[in-house]
Every structure is written in C-alpha cells, then in structure tokens.
Design a protein around this nucleic acid. Sequence first.
RNA 1: GUGGCUGUAGCUCAGUGGUAGAGCCCCGGUUUGUGGUACCGGUUGUCGCGGGUUCGAUCCCCGUCAGCCACCCCA
Length: 414
Amino acid sequence: MAKGFQTLPGFRDFYPDDCAARNYVFEKWRAVAQRYGFVEYEAPVLEPTDLYKRKSGDEIVHQLFCFTDKGKRDVSMRPELTPSLARMAAARQRDFKKPLKWFSIGQFFRYEKQQKGRGREFYQFNCDILGESSPAVDAELIALSIDLMRDFGFTADDFKIRLSDRNAWTDFATRSGVPDDQLTAFLQVIDKLEREAPEKTAAKLEPLGVSLEAIREFIANGDTASEVITQIRQDLAARGMGDFVEVDLSIVRGLAYYTGAVFEVFDIGKGMRAVAGGGRYDSLVNLIGGVDMPAAGFAMGDMVITDLIRESETPNERLANSIVGSQSIDIFVIVADAEKRAESLQVVQDLRTAGYRTSYAYTDAKVGKQFQSAEQLGAKIAIVVGTEFPTVTIKQLDSREEKTCAISELMEEL
RNA sequence: GUGGCUGUAGCUCAGUGGUAGAGCCCCGGUUUGUGGUACCGGUUGUCGCGGGUUCGAUCCCCGUCAGCCACCCCA
C-alpha cells in the first residue's frame, strides 16, 4: 500500500458495489426526468476557462481544474453544466420548440478541499426548463425533485423543500432604500443570516440602511412576501405536494446567477448539506449566448443523496436490493462430469441466448463446490449436466426442489 | 486556504520503547455427483512516508502526505 498508487485526493474508485449504487441513483434520475417529459443531452467535459469566468468572475479559477492545452488554450474541467447549457440553448434556440425540457447526468470537477458530501469529482443530475418564464415551470421542477426523492423511498418526514424568491428581497431592498449597487452585498448578508452572529449581521446592515428587525419580520411573513411563491405553492398544492414545501426567505443560494424563485432540498434530522438546489436564472442565457431566454433549473449531486440514502432505512433497503439484483445471475450450470464440459458449454450458450444471466465453473471442481459458487453468485436455479446427459437436472436453489428433464425441453421447463 | 482529530494485514480494529495480534473477508480441506450453518488449516503487513531523540521506535518529538470533521466556499 505504501508503495502503491492511490487515487488523487477527492477522487473515488468505484468497486462493483459502488458502481451498482451509482447506477441505481442514475437510473432514478433518468427515470423521473423522462417521466416528466425531459430529454437527455450532454456537453463537453472540458471547456474554455473563459466560459466559467464569464459567469462567475476571475476568482472562480481557484476552484477549477484548469490547465493550458497543447494548443495553448486555457481550458477547464467543467465545474458545472449550466454555462454549457446556456451556450447550447442560445446557439440553436431556433431549432427547438419552447419550452426546452432538458436533463443531463454527468461528472464534474471542482478543485476544493473534500469533506463529507463533497469531493473534487462528483456526478450531478441537471434538470432545466428554458424558454418559459411562468412560475408553473418553477413548480414543475420542484415537483420533479419531490417525486425523485419519493422514488428513492423518502417521505415527507425525511426531507423538505425550502422555497424562496430573490425578487422578494430585491423589492424589499429597494423599498428600504438600499442602493442598487449594494444589492449583491445585501443578498450576501441575507445568505449568511443563519450562520453569523446577530451583532455582526446588524453591523453589516447598518451602512445599507436596513435593520435586522425589519429583515426578521420580513422573513417571518415569508408566505405573503412574493406573488411568485404564492403561485408556486398553489401549483404544488394542486398536485398534493403542498406538505413538502416550506417558505424560507433566508435561502438565496449564494451569489449565483439566480434571478427569481430559488429552492433547496434538505434532509430532516440528519443535518447534511443541501441534497439539491436550483432556481430561476432569466439572464444567464443572454450573458453566455446573447439570446434572451428565461430559464430555471436545479441540480442534484450524487454524494449527498447517496449518503442520505445509506443513512435512511427504507431508501437504503431499496438501494441494497437494487445492488444485489443488478449483480446476481439467474442460472449456474454445474458441470457434474468433466467429460460433459462441451455439452455444458452448449447449455450455457443456449441459456445466454435466451436471455438468462448464466455462469459456470471455468475449471473442473467438485459438485458441492460448484453449488456453493451458484449460491454465492445469487443464482436462483442450478442446472446439473452430468453423465446422464442429455437428461439434465434443474434445481431451485431457494426451495431445494429439483426435477429432471431432457435437454430439448429445458427452456420450457424453466 | 484555516483549525481539530486520525493513519497498524484487503476490511474493522487491538497492542507494546526491544523489530506485531484478533475478528471478518479470501483460499484450501472435512474422501465417493448437491449449496447458504459448523469444524480444521492457510496466505498477507518494510505498523502512511521522511527525519530526529534513544543502545534500540510501530509506540516519544518534528515535518510531510492522506483521511475524517468543522470553518471559508458551495456554481
């Protein structure tokens, strides 16, 4: 181990069990997105570094896996998908009927110090609707995230949606006399409200001309703070999803490109970081691609959701079942007589052609040993091929019942 | 980037200033063509790496790398 190679910090090996777990998450992501009528797309893993600077400024470079390629281009491993999406949507926006409902599952890279729920490499599910500014779109995305969580096996006791609206804050700021050029600073204070000492927050608010009390009162009355929030909640209530949503104006999603409603999916009781998050970003497509197109979307990473699944009873059982199911074989052919190996191989081949997941011992081994292998590989059925061939024995491994049949009738007997 | 904790067989860990153990896993066996339990046996480690103190360090000290946790950040 000392002399061997290790993965780079923040990168993961996916052994078969891990890979099966990852694929399980991917399958859920894909299934729910398709159920909502989204189509899948993909973008390059490597992009010009400027694409990310355009959106987030130069500081972003510190958290990018970036380098100069052999053509002297400044390039970066993608840290997120939205800028690529904005470029794609803008470039061929005339080719698609609006709204676009696109999803993607891909790997992303961020040069950050890893900790629980965060690595330097991760997979992320991105789901966006472009070309439609109605709050119905925001609600649709939230509904999708709720259904996704339910598909994993979570209930209203396990997670909730925190909903907010940046416009509620910009309106509030304007009413309160905060200068336009101080808006970003103002939102930053709101973002840190829950994590920072009240005195510190109050001190930051003073030059902006807003009192902490006024902000607290505004948050306390969040339910009525925004017409958009009201519409989204009515929409979700009509789907029977009202209980999952909680208005929480303290959510403003960092300094991102969001322009309206924003939401996050949080676990209840585990205290993990946000499982998913998203919101409306009506000006980004124009910023990147020069085309006006309203948009909203959200993303879910694989790390937090997998942690949460593993720490939750029902979701973890579903995951475990899926892992076993994806790795188990259907039938194990037992070569009971080494002289019949050729015949056994024909049986194996026929079974595989018929679609059964089939395996067998590559070298001669005792029958008991072969049954053990069948057991360990999760086979439901063992077929014994021996001296009595062309008669074979079919054994149900769970019930231990067995019957014999002519090889010609094998497929019917199974 | 900052701070705290940790680093011993593939995994989970124990252990002592005098060059190391357990359980699990894995492999083999418990004789003749039938499996999940049981029993027996076996493989594996430069005790993360480098340096220092010491007659001698896996155990003490320093550094480093890595991991975990928190902060920053979180697109």
